[in-house]
């Protein structure tokens, strides 16, 4: 029950991409003494390897570590509960606002979101410039995603495969 409450709260206050949410989960989970720092880091490693939103995966894992399968289902449902309600309500409220106000709001959020994505790019830039292979993967991903109709998922899986082959041959 305490687990459900904690993840309801995490879901309600977590803004931005997965990494922000992971930070919030860490504060809650490590702060409550459910897991230690080391255990949490291992868990985040696993949340990255598995597909899907990193924050959701982290929630599922914490639930699993604490209470097994029921715990993981409870934690993942709790973390998305408040966002789900808000999204359903947002559509309703936007409908009440009238088309013009809704349009203004939509345009203003687009203006601000542009800045948020720019910030994300800025914070990722050093990682892309860190090595020649890293820059190459990023450049290919950029070119494919920006200028072709190829699904970017193939570039993600392809880069992973190429790096694995490189690592095997480097031994």
């Amino acid at each position: 029950m305490e687990l459900v409450l904690a993840f309801l709260k995490i879901g309600a206050v977590s803004y931005g991409g997965g990494w922000t949410i992971v930070g919030i989960i860490k504060t809650e989970v490590v702060g409550r003494g459910w897991l230690d720092e080391q255990g949490f880091s291992e868990l985040v490693g696993l949340a990255q390897v598995t597909p899907g939103p990193v924050a959701l995966n982290a929630a599922t894992l914490v639930g699993y570590r604490l209470y097994g399968v029921p715990g993981s289902i409870a934690a993942s449902l709790s973390v998305v509960f408040v966002p789900t309600l808000l999204i359903l309500a947002a559509g309703f409220i936007l409908g009440k606002l009238g088309e013009r106000t809704a349009l203004r709001l939509d345009q203003s959020l687009r203006t601000a979101t542009f800045a948020l994505v720019a910030l994300t790019l800025w914070s990722f830039a050093p990682a892309a410039a860190a090595s020649i292979p890293a820059a190459a993967y990023a450049l290919v991903a950029f070119a494919v995603s920006a200028f072709t109709t190829v699904n970017p998922v193939w570039v993600i899986l392809g880069a992973g495969s190429v790096e694995t082959i490189r690592a095997v041959f480097a031994r």
Partner: peptide
């Protein structure tokens, strides 16, 4: 290694998202 490669595409994907 697989993760490192897959993760390395993310900056490029974000740049493309911003451009689009």
């Amino acid at each position: 290694a697989f993760l490192r490669g897959a993760g390395a595409t993310v900056p490029g994907l974000v740049a493309a998202l911003l451009l689009r």
